[in-house]
Design a binder for these strands. Structure first.
Lengths: 203, 203, 203, 203
DNA sequence: AATGAATGAGGGTTCATTCAT
DNA sequence: TATGAATGAACCCTCATTCAT
């Protein structure tokens, strides 16, 4: 069973594809149960293979965690880029960014997004992840500050807003069920509206 | 040296008080690092005692987790009660509830609130916690529905709003630093405003 | 069974003594079977305890190896010091050093001496051990050179002599049986004579 | 790329030659790093092939070890035969034997000689190796005893001398560097002289 | 009540070995 | 014959839990 057999066709990309399959399955589990609460035995079993086989595709558990963070951060950076490109006001940029970020989380790359356990990373990896995360959050802060200046957003400590948004989003994999009434993009739109409207300037 | 020695004076309440001290310290650690990533050795060391001593006050680690959940849910229920008592509209009730809930989290009972790892509970305990959590969330849903009817809140799926709020709040212990510029109640007010305004009806 | 129970009497030194017991038993096994071929399960069983218990006394297997090296090197340094103090010619210094080194190996501190697997050490530890070993060997070289100058020893590449001696000595734990006809010191004298006479100048 | 490709030409001997190549490469690694510290992955990589391919030529790792022992013991037996044939006194026989033994170790068949880990052998193999090793050592003992009788060697326990010699020789692969100033045969002569002179009778 | 030593189960990782292609 | 993916056993290490003092 599992997502392993006959999931991949072409022949030299198989390695990479299987590695991605491992990362995504592990990321899904990490997002849902937490890094320390996920054993590689379980990840392997979910893929229909054996724990030892994982090590043909990843170096160790910490590498999986790091790669999951990187994948999630790639998504985040793309969302930021889209927001900056397509939005005109601060509020627009923020809305576009959040929405595409959340939507991407439920896409193909799936719940591999949003891992919380930064402390479990190797120190060198942790520094990279933290640096990138700080830049990510700073981009939000900058958008919010722009919105404050252009009058589309309320004045408040931008960091608090950012952390609040991140918490709401990071929590989503824990309650989102694929069989819910809303599709991923619809859900993303709803949550984004809820979050951004709290920050939006009233007339 | 920890919060252990000469922290308690009266003689028969000592047992209960020390037990509470254990629960609160463990809850703080669970909130910040996660249940599985917190070893009882660390909890004991933070209290200035030895791991074995913990077992004079709690049965096992899972009991600690259950009690932490219960304490947090007590806080939640009190917040709900306060909201229902003091608020008139749905929006008011929601605001009062959220604000007092968050504020209590940073009170004396501290960050013992909000543990996420429901899966680590014993099955019987998990059922209790889940049932109570569902009731807690249902109270929110009811408030929000009332707000929709009385025109103070926007129409949207109330469950999504509740989960979004919970995520934002549950995440707070991970970024809140005691030396921040805002006190606990001030922070509670800010975050509450941000969250509820997202749901508030516009004129 | 094992060397564990009722082996230690005084009360605060017990920790240290048990740690030494672990180190010596592990060192004995390492010397005889090699580091990688010795499982901590076997070491623990030889001591009548369980593997996990070892970790009350040592941090990990690599620390055991490092400490064994250090103990052996302490013996080596003492032997060098004795040779330098009590010998007059180069040949005498060499003889005294080798003999007391070998004898000490079979003393109380036992076969914990002479581990070969330097590569298994943590890099930082390896640097320390290698530096100290180089100094140890250099002391031999210096003695031999002195013997060449004072006419008590033959002229040859001193390094080859030192390595040859070290090989002969390092090999001893693999064939020495306590029930042999010779005591430790007697054996030390025999082997030392054999080795040094090969290097001694003829008249 | 390794010693694998286009190293062998004739067609039915290829099997045997490749098997020898495997044995020699593995023996080299075993001598230098130890049996348990050498993974077949490393051996294969050094040969420019893949681990699985090894199993076309050897049954398992233990068989490699056994064959390495056998090859080394072949060398030993030839050295003994040469010593017995070409030497007249006990001292001469011993000298010739040791020197040709050591020299052969650094020949083409190389450091495949001298593996120490007898315990890793299959019991049946171990018995064979031990029996042959005992005979090998007994030949040395006999030579030494002859030297004692004919006055060319000192009187001492011959077993101690043999073990000492073996230790010194077995250790050589761990420190010998091919880029050293001395060639294999030169080194063999030096070490042999050093060892035998320790046992030589003085006038 | 408190200690600290001991235990045993569980998880991460390596690696010899097998097998389909 | 060569490959490389997969397996499973063995090992190191952590940690919740127990127990004698």
């Amino acid at each position: 069973m599992g997502r392993w057999k006959n999931a991949h066709k072409t022949n030299d990309e198989i390695q990479r594809l299987k590695r991605m399959t491992v990362l995504k399955e592990a990321g899904r589990a990490f997002s849902k149960y937490g890094y320390h609460n996920t054993s590689l035995d379980e990840v392997a079993r979910a893929l229909g293979i054996v724990k030892g086989t994982l090590y043909n595709y990843v170096r160790d558990k910490q590498e999986i965690l790091f790669e999951c963070h990187s994948l999630a951060q790639d998504i985040g950076d793309q969302a930021i880029a889209k927001g900056l490109r397509d939005g005109r006001t601060g509020a627009e940029k923020l809305t576009i960014t959040l929405q595409s970020y959340i939507a991407a989380m439920f896409e193909d790359l799936g719940a591999c997004a949003i891992i919380m356990e930064i402390d479990a990373l190797r120190p060198a990896d942790r520094r990279k992840v933290v640096a990138r995360r700080d830049a990510f959050e700073q981009s939000f802060v900058t958008m919010i500050e722009e919105g404050m200046r252009d009058g589309t957003l309320l004045r408040m400590d931008p960091k608090i807003a950012v952390f609040t948004f991140m918490g709401a989003i990071n929590w989503m994999p824990r309650w989102y069920r694929e069989d819910g009434r809303l599709s991923g993009p619809q859900l993303a739109a709803e949550v984004t509206r809820l979050l951004v409207d709290g920050l939006r300037a009233r007339k």
